[in-house]
C-alpha cells in the first residue's frame, strides 16, 4: 500500500456552500473508491479549510502555486486571469436551474478547449463546478414594478453591479458579511443575493421582503487540482479523483438545492415575505439593460465568443430559455 499526502483547502469555512461538498463528498469518495479498488493507494488528507492559509482573493494562486494541491477556486474573483469562466455574470436572466449550470460547466470545462486551456494556463486541472443558486432581491421593501427600484440603494458587489444599470437603483459595494450591517444601519436598503448565502448571514432579519426576480444561477468557480500535482498522481488515483469529482458535482447541486429550499422555509418562518416580480416588469428590466456583455467580449476576443456561443447553445439544448439572447449577432 502506498500513502499519498494531499493538501486540500479553501478560503471559506467547511459549512460554506462551495466547500461543503469538498469536505463531505470529494474526500470520502476518493477514500472509498481507492479502498474499493484494492486499497493499493491511501490518501492522507491535510485540511486547510476556512482561509487559514490564504484569503478569498488568492484562491487561484493558492492552487496554481501549490500552496494546496486541491482547492476551491473562485473564478468570480479572477476577472483578469480567468475571464472566460465569468460568462454567466455578464449574461444574467439565463436560467434559474443551478444543476443545469453545474452540468454545463462540468462538460465545457473538460470538452471546450478554450475553457480547458484556461485552467491549464493557470496551472490547474478543473475537477468539479461550483455555482450559486438564483439571485433575487432581499430588501426592506417589496418590488412590484421597476418604479419601486428608483433611487434605491442595493448591495451589488463586483460584476453584479452591472445588473442594476438603467434600473434607477444605485449599486453599493459589499460582501455577504457586510450586508446585515449595511441594511440595518440604512447604508443600503437591500441586496442582490441568493437564498443559500442569505440564510447563514441572517440578512432576512433586516431585509424581510424577498422579491423573486430570477436573475439566474451563476457559475462561481471550480474545485481544481494543481496541474503538476495532478499529473504526478498514479493513474488509478487520477481516475479516483475524476470519479469523486463527478459525485461531488451532484452532491454540490443537491446541497445548494436543499439549502435554498430550507432557507426559504426557515426565513419565512422567521418573518420573511416572498413576492414575485411580474413577468412584464422582469421583461422591462432585462430589455432595459445595456449590452453589458460587450466589454467582456472585447476583453476575451475570439475565445469569449466561442465560450458564449457554447454556453448559450448548451442552455437551449437543455431546454432553458434565456430571457435575453446575449449571444445574438455573434
Amino acid at each position: 500500500q502506498q500513502s499519498l499526502t494531499v493538501n486540500i483547502g479553501s478560503s471559506h469555512p467547511e459549512a460554506n456552500i462551495w466547500v461543503y461538498a469538498m469536505k463531505n463528498t470529494f474526500q470520502p469518495e476518493v477514500n472509498r473508491i481507492l479502498a474499493e479498488n484494492g486499497n493499493e493507494y491511501q490518501v492522507n488528507w491535510v485540511e486547510n479549510y476556512a482561509g487559514t492559509l490564504y484569503k478569498f482573493t488568492d484562491t487561484r494562486e493558492a492552487v496554481m502555486d501549490g500552496i494546496v494541491d486541491v482547492g476551491m477556486v473562485g473564478t468570480v474573483w479572477e476577472g483578469a486571469n480567468m475571464p472566460l469562466q465569468n460568462v454567466t455574470y455578464f449574461t444574467p436572466f439565463a436560467t434559474e436551474d443551478h444543476r443545469m449550470i453545474i452540468e454545463i460547466f462540468d462538460d465545457l470545462s473538460e470538452n471546450l478547449p478554450e475553457l480547458k486551456n484556461s485552467w491549464a494556463e493557470n496551472g490547474m486541472v478543473h475537477l468539479s463546478s461550483l455555482i450559486t443558486d438564483s439571485y433575487d432581491i432581499y430588501a426592506t421593501f417589496p418590488v412590484a414594478s421597476m418604479a419601486d427600484l428608483q433611487n434605491r440603494k442595493l448591495n451589488a458587489p463586483g460584476t453584479s453591479a452591472n445588473w442594476l444599470r438603467e434600473t434607477g437603483a444605485t449599486p453599493v459595494d459589499g460582501a455577504l458579511t457586510t450586508y446585515y450591517t449595511n441594511i440595518q444601519t440604512g447604508v443600503t436598503e437591500g441586496t442582490l443575493s441568493f437564498a443559500s448565502g442569505i440564510l447563514p448571514t441572517r440578512v432576512y432579519e433586516v431585509a424581510p421582503e424577498l422579491t423573486r426576480v430570477g436573475i439566474g444561477s451563476m457559475y462561481f468557480g471550480g474545485i481544481a487540482a494543481n496541474k503538476d500535482f495532478f499529473e504526478g498522481l498514479p493513474a488509478p488515483v487520477q481516475t479516483a479523483f475524476r470519479e469523486a469529482a463527478r459525485a461531488t458535482s451532484i452532491a454540490h447541486g443537491d446541497y445548494v438545492g436543499d439549502l435554498a429550499a430550507r432557507a426559504l422555509d426557515e426565513m419565512q418562518a422567521a418573518g420573511l415575505t416572498i413576492h414575485q416580480l411580474p413577468d412584464e416588469e422582469k421583461a422591462k428590466w432585462v430589455n432595459g439593460l445595456p449590452n453589458i456583455i460587450e466589454p467582456w467580449l472585447e476583453q476575451t476576443g475570439e475565445a469569449g465568443k466561442t465560450v458564449l456561443k457554447a454556453y448559450f447553445s448548451a442552455l437551449r439544448e437543455r431546454g432553458a430559455t434565456p430571457l435575453r439572447n446575449w449571444d445574438e449577432g455573434l
Binding site: 488568492d58 502555486d65 500552496i67
Partner: peptide, 17 residues
C-alpha cells in the same frame, strides 16, 4: 523553500489588502 517564497509573496501582496 519555494512554498515559503510563494506564501510570502501572497501575504505581502494581499495579507492586508
Amino acid at each position: 523553500i519555494d512554498l515559503s517564497f510563494r506564501m510570502l509573496e501572497l501575504t505581502a501582496y494581499s495579507g492586508i489588502a
